[in-house]
């Protein structure tokens, strides 16, 4: 991948790498909080894509990609609050955050 690497391609590859790292973390870790951390990494990688496309697309003054990223950051903050609240509620109920032990839907 030498020679044809434009700045946008570099940012997209970094975002893909971060997304895959987050996905691997979300799929392989046992602790529920670390799964949430993986999801946060995936959301951030998507934001990097949005900002990179905004920067290198023909009409950056329209602010579309930038606005999408700002709204995405805000929604991700709400997601983190609700997700961590759920983890705390589950911990209070089952006294563990180990996802391999939390295999029952019934309380």
């Amino acid at each position: 991948m030498t020679g044809i690497v434009t700045p946008l391609t570099g940012y997209l590859v970094v975002a893909a790498l971060l997304f895959s790292i987050g996905l691997a973390g979300a799929l392989t870790r046992r602790n529920a909080i670390l799964v949430l951390i993986g999801i946060e990494l995936m959301l951030n990688a998507a934001n990097l894509n949005l900002i990179a496309f905004w920067r290198y697309a023909p009409h950056p003054e329209a602010l579309t990609g930038m606005m999408f990223a700002i709204f995405s950051i805000a929604v991700a903050a709400g997601e983190a609050a609700v997700g961590l609240g759920l983890v705390i509620a589950i911990y209070r109920h089952a006294h563990t955050t180990d996802l391999d032990q939390l295999s029952r839907m019934k309380g």
């Binding site: 590859v13 997304f19 799929l27 290198y56 023909p58």
Partner: peptide, 26 residues
Amino acid sequence: GLLIAAAVFAVMGWAVLASAPALPNE
């Protein structure tokens, strides 16, 4: 999980590099 993540990265990296000439570059 690791295999799925590696496959996702392979697909996304291939898509990005294959479409590199068509991407905007202002």
